[in-house]
């Protein structure tokens, strides 16, 4: 505003009338920063992951875990609530194209030979938890115990949340890095991590590792699981599916 205007104020004159379009600049600047953020994201993300990861180790409040890329697991459930199961009422059935259908209690599974693996966990939405120990019974052992018939080609997994399903081909299911997991991070699997028993498919994105596992059914073809009917790849190899190029786990 110049002096001339100050001396001759008009009734309708607003003080902004002849000002600079700063609002537009802020608006466009914000858009520009967003675009810049897209370009700078990969190195920024790596740096922040490293920084927040080490900060989380010494953070007693756990607040760093809430920050983006702060490390740690995120809880996803596709249903409203999931009933809790424990040693008393948990059952795992193996049926379908098998000679000897089986039902296991938690104690039965615990009594079988356990395998422990320490690998990274990679979610298809981006988060990764490094070097996470899983422990449990090899799926191949349960398949052998049930006697898979020659007509079986795939394995379907059902869960006691009543909605989630997953599938593997028989060859994938027989891999030594596929477990029926009872323990994670050297603790019994808690409910929020899919306990007491979940699937653990080490080389695939984590949606393949169905939580709250309650049924293993041998089928003659692969049936797409819950997320696979919603667009995810059935063969969910880390780094080679879902259009992602994460480092393999």
């Amino acid at each position: 505003m110049n002096a001339e205007q100050l001396e001759q104020p008009q009734q309708s004159e607003q003080p902004e009338e002849h000002g600079n379009p700063v609002g537009r600049r802020v608006f466009l600047g914000t858009l520009g920063l967003g675009a810049l953020g897209m370009i700078a994201a990969p190195p920024l993300q790596r740096g922040l992951e490293a920084f927040l990861g080490s900060a989380a180790d010494v953070d007693p409040t756990g607040l760093t875990g809430l920050l983006p890329n702060g490390g740690g697991f995120r809880y996803y459930s596709v249903v409203t609530s999931v009933s809790h199961k424990d040693a008393g009422n948990y059952r795992l059935t193996v049926d379908g194209l098998v000679d000897r259908p089986q039902t296991y209690t938690l104690a039965d599974l615990q009594a079988m030979p356990q395998n422990r693996m320490v690998r990274d966990v990679q979610c298809v939405t981006g988060w990764r938890v490094p070097e996470t120990p899983f422990e449990g019974v090899r799926l191949s052992r349960l398949l052998d115990a049930a006697g898979v018939r020659s007509t079986a080609r795939a394995v379907r997994f059902t869960c006691f949340d009543g909605a989630y399903t997953e599938s593997l081909t028989l060859d994938q299911a027989r891999r030594p890095d596929v477990l029926v997991a009872l323990r994670m991070q050297d603790k019994d699997l808690g409910h929020s991590h899919g306990g007491p028993v979940r699937l653990y498919v080490a080389p695939m994105y984590f949606y393949k590792s169905a939580k709250w596992l309650s049924g293993i059914t041998l089928t003659d073809e692969v049936q797409p699981g819950y997320w696979e009917e919603r667009g995810y790849d059935i063969d969910g190899w880390v780094g080679r599916s879902n259009g992602r190029d994460d480092e393999p786990t």
Partner: peptide
Amino acid sequence: THLTPVMWRTSATFVHDWLA
């Protein structure tokens, strides 16, 4: 997800998270 390459998607997630 099928409109853009994966690197864009990861970057978009990063910007979306922090701007949120």
